[in-house]
Structure formats: C-alpha cells, structure tokens
Amino acid sequence: MSQVWAVFKRELKSYFVSPLAYTAIASFLFVMNVLFVFSLNAYETTRRAAAQQLQQVPGAEALVRDIFGGNVMWALVFIVPLVTMRLLAEERRQHTAELLLTAPMTTRQLVLGKFLGAVFILAVMLALIGWQPLLLRMWGDADPAPVWTGFLAALLYGSFLLSIGLLASSLTESTFVAAIIALGLLALVNWGGVAVGQIPIIGPGLEQFTPVENLKALVRGTIETRAVVYFLTMTLFVVDLTARVVDSQRWR
C-alpha cells in the first residue's frame, strides 16, 4: 500500500507543478459555469411556463439534477482526457517507466496510484463547482438529497471516465494520441449510452446497464446501491485491465 501512496503523492506533485492540472481545472470550471447559466435560463423558462398554466412549479432540485446528471457528464468528456493523457504515456516517453517497472511493486499498485492521483484532481474540480448546488440549496430551496447524491454520482461517474482515460494513456507513448483515444472512448460511453435507449424493443432493457442511466439513477436523490456497485466494479475492471495492458507491454 505504501507503494500506491508513493506513486499517488508523486503524481499529485507532478500535476501541480505543471500547468496541466490548472488548465484542466480552469477549463472545467469555465465550461461548468457557462452551462450553469444556460441551465438557470432554461429552468427559469420552464418555471414561468408552468406558473402561467397554473401547473406545479418544478423545484430547484431539478436544476441540481441538471448540474450533476447533465452538465458534469458532458464537461467531463472533454476534461478527463486532459487529466489522464500523460499518466502512463509520459512515463514511457521519458523512460521513467523503467524506474517504476523495476521497483519492487506490482503493476496494479502502480496503476492504482496513478488512478487515485487523477481522482484527486476530479475531487478538487467537483469541490470547486460545489457552490452551484449549494447556492440552489440555500436560496432556491432545493431538496438536500440530490445535492449530496449528486456529488457522489459525479465522483463515481467521473472516476469511471478517468479509468477509461488511464487505459487510453497506457496504449501509446504520445500524450496527444492518448488524449484523442480517450476523447473517442468517452464520447462513445456518453452518446452510446444515450443511443442504446433509442433501440426499439430491447433498448429500454439494455439501458439500465449503461453508465449514463446509472448516473441518472444516482442523481435522483437516493443512494442506489446497484448503481454504486455498478460504477465501482466497472472502474476497477478498467483499472485492472490497464495494469494488464502495461504488463503485456513487457512481452514486446
């Protein structure tokens, strides 16, 4: 475990001495805040329309769900590749992989340490947009439940995307190529997830296995054990797969 900790600490230091972490975090905040304004406007329009027709006005928690279930989901597709692209590709390019792979630790420990470093960045990003749901909670009277499960959902979903980005980074020596691969895979996870629901007959049945649907289940406001387990297993599976890819590269 101490090896994982060592790799994790070095990863964080490395993130914060390069402009990369700052760029990724700043871009995320920018995108999220722009989307927040759009969401507010859209919410306002719906609210007025509902009020005019004397229907029940949706609560601000609808907006909270929008932030975690929509905005975060799309913003991460573009931010995650930035966070993960150098994780393993850079180690190979600058030959530091040889240091890590000849040290007495398993490839899993190495990959896990790197993954957790990226998760930390994600946590920082989510903490920094935390004012949005909290604002809605304090002044918009939003239900507290979606606020908290929303953070959990975003963290779990984001971690899953990070694991995919990590896998992409293990496939190449070039950070740029790693970012492009990650972007492609993440877009597939999101759009693919949405598209599955559109398939006639079997679509609705398959939908519950998509990351997108599990994210939505969590954002609703209750901790869905099924969704939590879903994300944890999927993420660990991809992290483990990454370790296997790195190991298999020894044979070449």
């Binding site: 101490s2 090896q3 060592a6 790799v7 600490k9 070095r10 230091k13 490395s14 001495v17 390069s18 600058q94 030959h95 530091t96 992989a97 040889e98 240091l99 890590l100 040290a103 007495p104 630790m105």
Partner: peptide, 20 residues
C-alpha cells in the same frame, strides 16, 4: 529515468519510497 519537473532530493525520496 528522470522526472524533469522534480527537485533532485524529492526525486531521490520518491525512488527510496518505491524501493521500500
């Protein structure tokens, strides 16, 4: 196998750590 962004001492500390 060097990390250009690290200070010599920190780098060696990391090397010592992963070497148990």
């Amino acid at each position: 196998p060097l990390y250009p962004e690290m200070v010599v001492e920190d780098y060696l500390s990391f090397a010592a750590e992963i070497r148990r």
